[in-house]
Amino acid sequence: MRSWSLKRPDGVVLVGESRGQGEPVVLVHPTGMTRRGLAAAADHLAPHLRAVTYDRRGWGDSRGTPAPQRWWASHGDDLIAVIESMGEAAEVVAWAGSCAAAIHAALRRPDLVRQLVLFEPTIGAGPPRARRLRHLRRALTAAAAGDHRRSRAVFWRATTRRGTWSLQAGSRGLVCAFDHVRSDIRELLLDAPGPLAEELRAGTEDELLERLAELRPEVHILLGGTSVRPVYRIADRWVERCPSAGFRGEDDCDALLPLNRPRVFAACVLEMLGYADWRAIAAARLAELREVLRLPALERLRARCVRNSEVFMPHVVSATPRWAAELEAGSASLLVGSTYEVTGAGARSFGVIDECGEDYGYPPGWFEPVPIDWQER
């Protein structure tokens, strides 16, 4: 990793980091966060691209504050300067409010932006509804009183909460991603230094919606499955107004996907930019699952099938394998006598990973190792 700083003509100093080699991809952090929030995702992008992160002016280690009337346009100018300093055009990945900066940069200098990946863009959100307006006022009030941690907590709970409160369900109908992430992620969001109140007052640049048709780079919109409903409506508007736009949602991911699942986020970005395909996402999910469950290292070998294609699933209580007849019809048939690539933890169990990344588990007696050397590809 290489640290750098860039001084702008107006005295603003931008501080950032560069990881890896190859074609550049610039990650632009959202409101309420610094470059630290995208560091883990950049680490996973670095083996494939030169991943660049930086603190926008006023945030983190960078200095200077944009004029209120040109808030996101100033951040767009800074993004252009960062790309120019690299000497070649770059892919740009932006999150939430910073998508406005990315759009400003792409409209002004389309020659510098190859493609755009926008996670939960807020351009076109319009005035917040009553409930969100109350949260916004509470965040601004806390900031004015000097209680910045409380201000940020209100902001993140409001922007990552999905669901509707009702007399019947109460708060049980609400899901808040901020309240369910690891404590270190919460601390990162609560301690991020920067002009949160000023950026909230700057708005979401809704007028840029009218200029989306002018965009030359391809636009890819990524959403979490539990992202708030307004961002899905925004994505629909984008696709209507921008011929080069398309979007996808990751069903089991939330509004803080780049923070709490950076490997999956990086795999999605690589796929959207054309540097990998769906296998990268499947591999990222499997690696993440092993990490969360602290599974032992898996053996990888070739083995010959000696039984039929019954599918065994672990019992929810005893964890012992049991035959799941309802799953057999939908599984890929295993042919007795055929050789398969299998993975497993010691001699306890083996699994055949199919082309969709699903891992079907079988007892070890269903395979016998083939006496050949397995060469890593």
Rank of each mutant, 00 (worst) to 15 (best):
R2Y: 13
L6W: 08
V15E: 14
G16P: 06
E17S: 14
R19E: 11
R19S: 12
Q21H: 15
G22C: 09
E23Y: 05
H29V: 01
H29P: 04
P30E: 15
M33K: 04
G37T: 07
L38Q: 03
A40H: 13
A40K: 06
D43K: 02
P47A: 08
P47E: 07
L49I: 07
A51T: 08
Y54F: 15
D55G: 02
G58P: 03
G58W: 00
W59Q: 03
D61N: 13
S62N: 09
G64I: 08
P68S: 08
Q69K: 09
A73I: 02
G76V: 05
D78T: 01
S85Y: 06
E88T: 11
A89C: 04
A89R: 05
A101L: 09
H104W: 11
A105I: 01
R109M: 08
L112T: 00
V113N: 02
R114N: 10
Q115V: 01
L118A: 09
L118F: 06
L118S: 05
F119M: 11
A125L: 15
G126A: 09
P128M: 08
R129T: 11
H135P: 00
R137S: 13
R137D: 15
T141R: 07
T141P: 00
A143E: 06
A144W: 14
A145S: 14
G146M: 06
D147A: 14
H148S: 05
V154W: 01
A158T: 05
A158Q: 05
T160R: 00
R162D: 06
Q168D: 13
R172S: 15
L174Y: 00
C176T: 11
A177C: 14
F178L: 05
D179P: 03
H180E: 15
H180W: 05
H180M: 07
V181L: 10
L189E: 01
E199V: 01
L200Y: 07
A202Q: 04
A202I: 10
L208R: 01
E210C: 05
E214D: 13
R216V: 15
P217D: 05
H220I: 00
G224T: 02
T226H: 07
S227C: 12
P230C: 07
V231R: 02
R233A: 15
I234P: 07
A235M: 10
D236T: 09
V239A: 08
A255R: 02
R261T: 03
F265D: 01
Y275P: 00
R279M: 11
A280S: 12
L286G: 03
R294L: 08
R294K: 09
R294A: 12
L295S: 07
P296A: 14
E299C: 04
L301W: 15
E310T: 10
E310A: 12
V311E: 09
M313R: 10
P314R: 02
V316N: 12
V316H: 15
V317D: 13
S318H: 12
R322W: 06
E328G: 12
S331K: 02
S333V: 08
S333L: 09
L334K: 03
L335C: 13
V336L: 12
V336K: 15
G337V: 10
S338P: 04
V342G: 04
G346Y: 09
S349W: 15
S349D: 13
F350T: 03
V352T: 02
E355G: 04
Y360S: 14
G361T: 08
G361N: 03
P363N: 07
P369D: 14
W374S: 01
